[in-house]
Amino acid sequence: MDPFVVLVLCLSCLLLLSIWRQSSGRGKLPPGPTPLPVIGNILQIDIKDVSKSLTNLSKIYGPVFTLYFGLERMVVLHGYEVVKEALIDLGEEFSGRGHFPLAERANRGFGIVFSNGKRWKEIRRFSLMTLRNFGMGKRSIEDRVQEEARCLVEELRKTKASPCDPTFILGCAPCNVICSIIFQKRFDYKDQQFLNLMEKLNENIRIVSTPWIQICNNFPTIIDYFPGTHNKLLKNLAFMESDILEKVKEHQESMDINNPRDFIDCFLIKMEKEKQNQQSEFTIENLVITAADLLGAGTETTSTTLRYALLLLLKHPEVTAKVQEEIERVIGRNRSPCMQDRGHMPYTDAVVHEVQRYIDLIPTSLPHAVTCDVKFRNYLIPKGTTILTSLTSVLHDNKEFPNPEMFDPRHFLDEGGNFKKSNYFMPFSAGKRICVGEGLARMELFLFLTFILQNFNLKSLIDPKDLDTTPVVNGFASVPPFYQLCFIPV
């Protein structure tokens, strides 16, 4: 058959498939802009700032609406009420993970971030239990974070109060905490193996944040037939998995079943207990991918939040002064901060919360999916439909947070200066898919920041009023603009 005829037939089939998918069930789905064949609503979305586009569309179609990214149908949730109703009140029905062709290629359905069903539930339950087990290797997770915080302070001392970009050092600290939990080992910041790991993690975040990856996920045929950065992403992930597998083999040879040292040991012990169960989800494949998931999810998000926190503290020296006064009063100079201190430091706690609220790190979270046909607000959402959640619409709700575009710790303080919780605080998402490392991340943010401010004054290279804190939105995360500062020993 003539190649031209084959091409026309293929394009015609794709067009018909697109029209059929977009028209099927439209009477039951939430409203939304009319999609174009094949490309859907992509032309109506700013790929570099999806969150802003969703906010604009919500003003037209309401808090629940339908979009098509290519052939992929998505239902968008915008605003606290619908997000709570879906992710919390109907948590089980909305607990699936959205379709990610690239991740599915890399992870093969294993791990904790992109798995679904029984596998996801069992691996998540085990990971939560293990991360909360403060007795691994007779050292609590808090001990590990405190140790890394001391190392971080010593690295900052080496800058000798000269101007520096904190990106690298602030990236090393949370990565080392995860390494300590998974591998029972922290690395020197100049260790070549550690630097290679950091390089792969950072490069992957840069790649994932590009519009090209959005295109690959919406048109998965590209993955096999086109060159691009997605190939580098898959190569980096394969490198990390190979490295983790080597460490798993080392653990198998040296493990003491009665004295687990780290996450890998705990997983291997669980595998041993379930070795007679042919349906067990505790396999080497799941261990390797879960460890890679924890490394990827637990490094860049925390380091970016820390980097943004220091920029905001530079911009608002009056806030920094209040935090340091609270540190001096509650902790002093002669001991290290600990998590028990947080309950006695409402202002510092409010500042950490406000940093996370203000920066809105992951504006749309990772997409969910419905696990069955769901009736939601008089609409029928078919099983498997991807759910896109606007966390921006919750964290920047102007009824809950007056002047949401302003950095103001009073958003989390009552009139008496006591810490005030808010149900709208969802930087880790909400419901059954809430970030498994939430507790660890909150511990790291509090301890790293208090250790830094206990030991250093922060000095800006320019007038604080002239510092730009506008986030650089890159399609996946909101990151701070480049800046330098000086760490002046107190």
Rank of each mutant, 00 (worst) to 15 (best):
P3R: 02
F4H: 01
V6E: 00
L7R: 04
L7K: 04
L7H: 02
L11I: 12
S12H: 09
C13W: 10
C13A: 15
L15R: 03
L15V: 12
L16V: 13
S18R: 15
I19F: 13
S23A: 14
P30W: 00
P30Y: 02
P31A: 07
G32L: 00
G32D: 00
P33D: 00
P35L: 01
P37Y: 02
P37W: 05
G40A: 01
N41S: 06
I42P: 03
I42W: 12
V50Y: 14
L54P: 01
N56F: 09
L57V: 07
S58A: 13
S58R: 10
G62H: 00
G62P: 01
P63N: 12
T66E: 02
Y68S: 12
F69E: 04
F69G: 07
E72K: 13
V75T: 04
V75K: 00
V76A: 05
V76W: 00
H78E: 03
G79I: 00
Y80H: 09
Y80E: 02
E85C: 06
A86M: 02
A86T: 07
A86R: 01
L87H: 03
I88D: 11
D89E: 15
D89S: 08
D89T: 10
L90D: 07
G91P: 13
G91D: 12
G91T: 07
E92S: 09
S95A: 13
G96R: 07
F100I: 13
A103E: 05
A103P: 06
E104Q: 09
E104V: 12
A106W: 05
N107A: 12
R108Y: 05
G109K: 14
F110E: 06
F110D: 06
I112T: 05
V113F: 06
F114N: 09
F114L: 07
N116A: 06
G117I: 02
G117C: 06
R119N: 09
E122L: 09
I123A: 06
R124M: 00
R125Q: 15
F126R: 01
S127G: 08
L131I: 12
R132C: 10
R132F: 11
R132H: 12
N133W: 10
F134R: 14
M136Y: 07
G137P: 12
G137V: 10
R139P: 11
E142V: 07
D143W: 10
E147D: 11
A149T: 03
A149Q: 00
R150C: 11
R150F: 14
R150S: 13
V153D: 00
E154K: 12
L156A: 05
K158N: 15
T159K: 10
K160T: 10
S162T: 13
S162G: 14
S162N: 09
P166T: 04
T167V: 07
I169S: 06
I169K: 03
A173G: 08
P174R: 01
P174D: 04
C179N: 15
K185D: 07
D188H: 10
D191E: 10
Q193S: 14
F194E: 02
F194Y: 08
L195R: 15
L195I: 08
L195F: 08
K200R: 11
E203I: 05
I205S: 15
V208F: 10
S209C: 14
T210D: 14
P211A: 11
P211N: 07
I213T: 12
I215Y: 12
F219G: 03
P220T: 09
I222G: 05
I223H: 06
Y225G: 06
H230K: 07
H230D: 03
N231A: 11
N231S: 10
N231R: 14
L234S: 06
L237M: 10
L237A: 10
L237G: 07
F239M: 14
E241W: 11
S242H: 14
L245M: 14
E246M: 09
E246A: 14
K249H: 10
K249T: 10
H251L: 01
M255W: 10
N258G: 10
N259V: 07
P260A: 06
I264L: 09
F267Q: 01
F267V: 02
E272D: 13
E272R: 11
E274D: 12
K275W: 07
Q276R: 14
Q279D: 11
S280V: 06
S280H: 08
E281F: 10
F282D: 02
T283C: 11
T283S: 10
I284M: 14
T290G: 07
A292P: 00
D293E: 11
D293C: 05
L294D: 01
G296V: 12
G298W: 05
T301M: 08
Y308K: 03
Y308I: 04
Y308M: 11
L310A: 04
L314P: 00
H316V: 05
H316M: 06
V319F: 07
K322D: 05
V323M: 14
E326I: 01
V330T: 10
R333Y: 13
S336T: 15
S336P: 11
P337T: 03
P337K: 00
C338M: 12
M339L: 15
D341V: 04
G343H: 15
M345S: 02
P346S: 06
T348M: 09
A350G: 04
V352T: 06
H353Q: 04
R357H: 00
I359R: 01
D360C: 09
L361P: 04
T364A: 12
L366V: 11
P367W: 06
P367D: 01
H368D: 02
A369H: 08
C372A: 13
D373H: 07
K375V: 11
K375H: 13
R377S: 04
N378P: 02
Y379P: 00
Y379F: 12
P382F: 02
L388G: 00
T389M: 15
S390G: 02
L391F: 04
T392R: 11
T392L: 02
S393M: 01
L395A: 03
H396F: 09
D397T: 02
D397K: 00
P409G: 01
H411A: 02
H411E: 01
F412G: 00
D414T: 11
G416Q: 13
G417T: 06
N418A: 14
K421P: 13
S422W: 01
N423D: 15
Y424C: 11
F425Y: 09
M426G: 01
F428C: 04
S429Q: 02
A430P: 02
A430N: 06
G431P: 01
C435E: 01
V436D: 02
V436S: 04
G437P: 04
G439P: 14
G439V: 09
R442E: 15
L445K: 02
F446R: 02
L447Q: 05
L447S: 05
L449V: 10
F451K: 15
N455M: 05
L461R: 11
L461F: 12
I462M: 13
D463R: 08
P464H: 09
P464A: 10
V473F: 10
A477C: 11
S478C: 12
S478T: 15
P480K: 06
P481H: 08
P481V: 07
F482Y: 04
